[in-house]
Simulated assay, not measured.
Amino acid sequence: MPRNKVKFALIENENDRKLSYKKREKGFLTKAEELRTLCDVEMAAILYSPFNNEPKVFPNHGAAITTFEKLVELPTLKKSKNMVTSDEFTKKRIEKLNDKLLKVRKKNKVKEVTNEMYEMLKCKEISIDMHPYDLNDLSYVIKQKLIQCLQQQRILPFL
C-alpha cells in the first residue's frame, strides 16, 4: 500500500510533531547504523530536539568525539575537497542543464530538418524565406542520409 505524500511544513499539533519526530529519528539512526556497517565508514551524528533533555549521540559519546576530532585535525584542503557551496552547486547544475538543453535542441533540429527533407522528397517546394543556415543544415542531413543509405547497400564501405 503506497504511503501518502508528505507536505513539508511544520506540524502544528504538538503530539503529532513529537510522534513524527520519534519515528523519523528512529529511521535516521537505523540508516546511519546500516551505512556505517555496510560501507565500513566512520561516522557520528548529534541530534538536538526539544523533546529530549539531552542530545542523542550516534554511535556513542566517545566515538563521536573521536570522529569530530579527526575531522578538525584534517588539513583544510582535504576537508574542503568534496564540499561545494550552494552557489557552486547551482552553477554546475545550470551548466549541466544547459548542455542537456543544447543536445536536445540539436536533436530536435536534426529531426526537423530530416522531416523537411522527406517533405521535399514528396515534391514539396522549399520555402522562399528559408534561412541560409537552415539550407546548410538541410544539405548536411541529406548528405548524411545518402552516406548512410550507400553504406547500407555497401556501395561506399569506407565512408
Rank of each mutant, 00 (worst) to 15 (best):
P2T: 09
P2Q: 08
R3Q: 13
N4E: 11
N4P: 03
K5E: 13
K5A: 04
K5P: 00
V6M: 11
K7M: 00
F8V: 12
I11W: 04
N13I: 05
E14K: 12
D16N: 07
R17D: 06
K18Q: 14
L19K: 10
S20D: 08
Y21I: 00
Y21M: 00
K22H: 07
K23E: 08
R24E: 08
K26Q: 04
T30N: 07
K31M: 02
A32N: 01
E33M: 02
E34R: 04
L35V: 04
L35R: 05
L35N: 05
R36V: 04
C39M: 11
C39D: 05
D40W: 02
M43K: 00
A44W: 03
A45D: 00
L47V: 15
Y48S: 01
S49P: 00
F51C: 03
F51N: 02
F51P: 01
N52K: 13
N52V: 00
N53R: 14
V57Y: 01
V57A: 03
F58I: 03
P59C: 03
N60H: 08
H61M: 11
H61C: 07
A63I: 02
A63E: 05
A63K: 14
A64S: 12
T67F: 07
F68E: 02
K70F: 06
L71C: 08
L71M: 13
L71P: 00
V72H: 12
V72M: 11
E73L: 14
L74M: 15
P75F: 10
T76N: 12
T76K: 13
L77N: 08
K79V: 01
K79I: 02
K81Y: 01
N82H: 09
V84N: 09
T85S: 15
S86C: 01
S86M: 13
E88P: 00
F89Q: 13
K91L: 14
K91H: 09
K96V: 07
N98K: 15
D99Y: 12
K100N: 12
L101A: 12
L101R: 12
L102C: 07
K103M: 08
V104N: 11
R105D: 07
K106I: 06
K106W: 07
N108K: 09
K111G: 03
V113N: 03
T114E: 03
M117K: 05
Y118I: 05
Y118F: 14
E119V: 00
M120L: 15
L121S: 02
L121M: 15
K122H: 06
C123E: 15
E125T: 10
S127E: 10
I128H: 11
D129G: 10
M130I: 08
M130D: 01
M130F: 01
H131Y: 10
P132A: 05
P132R: 06
Y133H: 11
D134V: 10
S139L: 13
Y140G: 05
I142K: 01
K143I: 07
Q144T: 03
Q144F: 00
Q144V: 05
Q144I: 01
L146H: 06
L146A: 04
L146R: 14
I147F: 09
I147N: 13
C149Y: 15
Q151T: 11
Q151C: 09
Q152M: 09
Q153Y: 09
I155M: 14
I155A: 05
I155K: 15
L156K: 03
F158P: 02
L159F: 15
